[in-house]
Structures are given as C-alpha cells and as structure tokens.
Amino acid sequence: MFSVGFRALFRRELLRFIRRPKNTFMPPAITNVLYFAVFGVILGGRIDEPVAGIGYILFLIPGLIVLGTISNAFENASFSIFHGRWNEYIHETLTSPLSYAEMVVAYIGASAVRGLIVGTIIAIIGRLFVPISIEHGLFLVATMVVIASLFAGLGIIGGLVARDFDDLTVMNQFILRPLVFFGAVFYSLTMLPATWQYVSLLNPMVYMVDSVRYGLLGYSDMLEVAPEAYAEFAPYASLGVLIALTGAVIALDVYLFKIGYGLTD
C-alpha cells in the first residue's frame, strides 16, 4: 500500500523527533505537569465543578490534550518543512521520484504521530492526578487522529509560507494559542452568557475540544448550548466537518507541493 520511498520519508520524519525527546517530548510534559498542578490542584480545588459530576482537573484534561496535540503536530510539520527549506535539504525529497501526495502524507503522518504521542503523554500525566475512564474510545481515537492530521496539514502550509523562524513563532503564539484558550479548554461554554456561547461557536477549536471531551468523558457542551437542531447530531457532526476540513487542507498541501509554492524557484 505504501511505497518504499514513502516509508523512507515517513521513517526519517519520525526519527527526527523521536531521537530528540529533550526538544520534542520533555517541554510539553513539563508544561502540562505545571498546568495540572497549578490550575488543577492549587486553583482547581477552589473552583466549583464546571459541570455536574466532573471535577475541574478532569474537565481540563481533554482541552490540554487537544492543546498539546495540535500545537505539536503543527510545530513539527511547520518546523520540518521550514528548516528543510532554510537549509535547502528539503531538496533531497524534492529531487526524488516520490509523488507530491506521498511527500505530503509522509510529512503529515509523522507530524500527526508526534501530536498523538504528546496527547497520550498529557493523558498519562492527567491520569496521575485524577482517575479517568474512557467513555467513547473509538470516537476519541478518530477525533484525535483527525485533529492531529488537520494541524499537521496546517503546519505544512505554515512551513511553506514562513519567511523566517519568527514567522513560525508568530503562528503558534498569536493564532493557535488564543484560539485554543478561547476554545473552552479551561471553562465550560455553559459558564458563559448566551451571547458569548454563540460567539464561541464560531471558534473551530471549540468543536475539537468538545469532541475530545465527549470521547473521553462522555460530556459535550454542544448538547447543552448548541441550537437544538445541531445538538442532536453533535458531536458526530463536528467530527464529520473536521474530516472534511482535514481532507481539504491535505489537498491544498499537495497542490502547493505540486506548484512548488515556497519550495522551488
């Protein structure tokens, strides 16, 4: 199914981050221990259950998993592409007989794996603070794979568009993080006034965090706050939209490789 060339590039991409755990896995592990300790234990003890029956630490876990997963998937893809462009060794791939689709899927696949590994690490850290039982396992895995792939695909665009390393930082800090923080990671939409609940529904992160929360905890804000017609289908509708969006981003990546955007003169 996968060609030797594809497997070689996928393996190269995996090894690049696996061999550098200090740079790739340690920082999110430490950050999340801090999040759980400060927000979960120290502050969380004084915060009422955001949702009946779900303590604050437990409520935080899905959002933090999403945050870690998507930022690492994005960062890996954007860095790998941009660093390869910067030092021109991406030419090793570009001058090979790999098809453009194979190149893109290998980069996305490996970056998504990094995101999923980080997501799993965060889940394990969370488990150290509070017991978790997975409510909808298959749905959870499907959602995680889709959002990791989506952000890996977006990371490729970031890596192609960036003109210097600062551009990569800007994308992560000024676009991703605000969206995630206002994506109901740290609070439930039910805690917001009705107007802000509807404004929040314009933020795509809300659906991702909510879907993962549904998969992991069996609870979805959507069922409470979304318009009735939509709430019936949520969060499966969210997953469907995310799959479609991911497909579109991958197709765009392949197109950019084909025209050589940011890659060729």
Binding site: S3, V4, A8, R12, Y89, E92, S96, P97
Partner: peptide, 27 residues
C-alpha cells in the same frame, strides 16, 4: 549541487540511506 544542501539531523550514512529510500531502494 554546488550548495551544501544536506540533512543536518542524521549521520551521513543515514542521510544516504534516506536518499536511496526515497528512490525506492529497500532499507
């Protein structure tokens, strides 16, 4: 090429293996 556009992350033997791999040569 004229410019040094080589993968900096891996020992050179692996760099060559990757390049061969992209061209469909088994590991």
């Amino acid at each position: 090429p004229q410019e040094f556009n080589v993968d900096r992350f891996f020992p050179i033997r692996e760099v060559l293996m990757h390049k061969a791999g992209y061209h469909g040569i088994p590991e």
